[in-house]
Design a protein around this nucleic acid. Structure first.
Length: 234
DNA sequence: CGCCAGGCCGTGT
DNA sequence: ACACGGCATGGC
């Protein structure tokens, strides 16, 4: 009899199953780091399709750059990002990020990225409209820091597969998912942690978009085997 | 047509 | 420390 695998070991196996099913994702779907940051704000509780409309508007207005965004009046910014919703909150939040960059990092994303991960994360979390997921998405995808990103899809996967006993929602639940992801990839030394966290988060979104993250008993789901053995019924 | 999307924040308990 | 409602639009 083999001992039951740890949740972290199972999650590492699930990652391989997702890679086999969906292939490399090479995220984030944006061209420049600043565009990644804008997307991170805009996609909060919002379908990516709608975010693309807003990014198209910003591109046409020449506002996908720091300077372009800075010179854009806030009411104009609201109008351009209207397709992705919550614009009365997201527009000031984006403006606050640019102001922080201007005042504290000489308008340089490179200088921002050079700060230590822990202090940088705290600084991002102190910004309006930036919670743990947005902060970590910016850290990983725009600034290249090796931090996992936990999202609603991963939360549901952890719940259905019974990967954690921690409270599912709230800051504690988020942190427990991050810790679990770190454990899952702790033994990987061949590839950079950042690349693995990058790919893993993209794959959780891929499986979510493919329906298997929402439908409780989806047999075509690449993760069906694990769920059959350890998860909720299906 | 109603539901929901790659969250976050303020308020109440 | 959490649950809950509000924020807003577009896709399906």
């Amino acid at each position: 009899m083999k001992r039951a695998p740890s949740p972290a070991a199972r999650l590492r196996t699930m990652h391989d199953q997702l890679v086999a099913a969906y292939g490399p994702q090479h995220w984030w779907p944006a061209k420049t780091p600043f565009e990644v940051i804008l997307g991170a704000y805009l996609t909060q509780n919002t379908a990516w399709k709608a975010v693309e409309l807003s990014l198209d508007n910003l591109r046409a207005a020449g506002a996908l750059t720091i300077g372009g965004l800075r010179s854009l009046p806030i009411d104009e910014l609201q109008r351009l990002i209207r397709p992705s919703g919550f614009y009365t909150r997201k527009a000031p939040a984006i403006k606050a990020f640019v102001a922080m960059l201007d005042h504290e990092f000489s308008s340089s994303l490179k200088k921002l990225a050079a700060a230590p991960t822990a202090t940088l994360r705290q600084r991002l979390l102190a910004l309006p409209g930036v919670g743990p997921e947005t902060a970590d998405a910016i850290l990983l995808y725009a600034l290249g820091h090796p931090v996992p990103v936990a999202d609603e899809y991963l939360r549901r996967i952890a719940e259905r597969h019974k990967l954690t006993t921690q409270p599912a929602r709230g800051r504690q639940g988020y942190d427990s998912l991050v810790a679990l992801t770190r454990q899952a990839f702790a033994g990987d030394h061949e590839t950079s942690q950042a690349s693995l966290f990058n790919e893993f988060h993209a794959l959780t979104v891929a499986v979510g978009k493919a329906h298997c993250g929402r439908t409780p008993h989806c047999q075509q789901c690449p993760l069906a085997a694990d769920r059959a053995r350890f998860g909720n019924g299906g």
